[in-house]
């Protein structure tokens, strides 16, 4: 039984008279612990697909099941609980609440989950250490580099203990050194925590880190294959 099952997902956007078919006939299964990349040219529907999986947007057609929960059937309040407890998000940039320190940002989701203060603190410390930011965790996002900010976002996503982490172009604003470092961190954590990752990217070097590459074009999956890469055991932490 797959963790995530998409059945015949279609998404149409209306812009006045013009209709855009952003996605059509998407069937996809993602298993627990997978580390999958979503690639494809600009406008191919990567963001749209991630939004639908994350319950941020509703599909026009088809069903999305995560862990046997039909996301497409959830109401707004249930969706936000679903995202709070089951999903982690890493966005392209400005992921963090600017008035909170790195540590507080990581704790925030767990506090919202209702975890005990002590547990929040412990887990936050643990994950910030894993992403190599223990020394700067009291800083606010404005005092962190882009790469550090993205690593805080990864720590935040994982500290909450999600089933699935969705990352839409998490490295788009990073140089390739930082980008590959972030990917390596994500990869390691995915292994350690058995957390499933789906991330989108344009960057071939980032793609290279994936274990599975799903290629989208014009809203359809045109290629979906296992990927064996060479760098998976080289973890360079850049601070």
């Amino acid at each position: 039984m797959a963790l995530l099952t998409l059945k015949d997902i279609g998404k149409r956007y209306r812009q006045g008279e013009v209709e855009v078919q952003a996605l059509s006939g998407i069937n996809l299964e993602i298993n627990e612990g997978e580390f999958a990349a979503l690639v494809g040219p600009s406008g191919s529907g990567k963001t749209t697909l991630l939004n639908i999986i994350g319950g941020l947007d509703a599909a026009s057609h088809g069903t999305t099941q995560l862990n046997n929960i039909d996301i497409s059937a959830l109401k707004e309040a249930q969706l936000s609980d679903f995202r709070l407890f089951q999903l982690g998000f890493v966005f392209q940039s400005y992921n963090l609440v600017p008035v909170l320190s790195a540590l507080e940002n990581v704790e925030l989701v767990m506090v919202l989950q209702g975890r005990h203060k002590k547990e929040c603190r412990q887990r936050a410390h643990h994950y910030l250490e894993l992403v190599g930011l223990k020394e700067v965790m009291q800083r606010r996002p404005s005092a962190l580099s882009g790469g550090q900010q993205q690593r805080v976002a990864v720590a935040r996503a994982l500290a909450a203990g999600p089933r699935l982490v969705l990352a839409d172009e998490p490295t788009a604003n990073l140089d390739s050194e930082n980008a590959t470092a972030l990917l390596d961190i994500m990869h390691t954590l995915s292994h350690e925590d058995k957390t499933t990752f789906i991330f989108s990217t344009h960057d071939p070097r980032v793609m290279d880190r994936a274990e599975r590459i799903i290629t989208l074009q014009d809203g359809k999956i045109v290629n979906d294959q296992e990927h064996h890469h060479e760098h998976s055991d080289k973890h360079e932490h850049i601070n």
């Binding site: 709070l84 407890f85 919202l112 989950q113 209702g114 547990e119 887990r123 643990h126 203990g161 058995k194």
Partner: peptide, 27 residues
């Protein structure tokens, strides 16, 4: 460290109030 699911506490506003207060004050 495990990724154990936290117990699904009822997500009441009351229990979230302190953190909301805190973030609001910072803002």
């Amino acid at each position: 460290m495990t990724t154990a699911q936290p117990e699904f506490m009822s997500a009441s506003v009351v229990s979230r109030f302190p953190i909301l207060l805190f973030v609001a004050w910072r803002n």
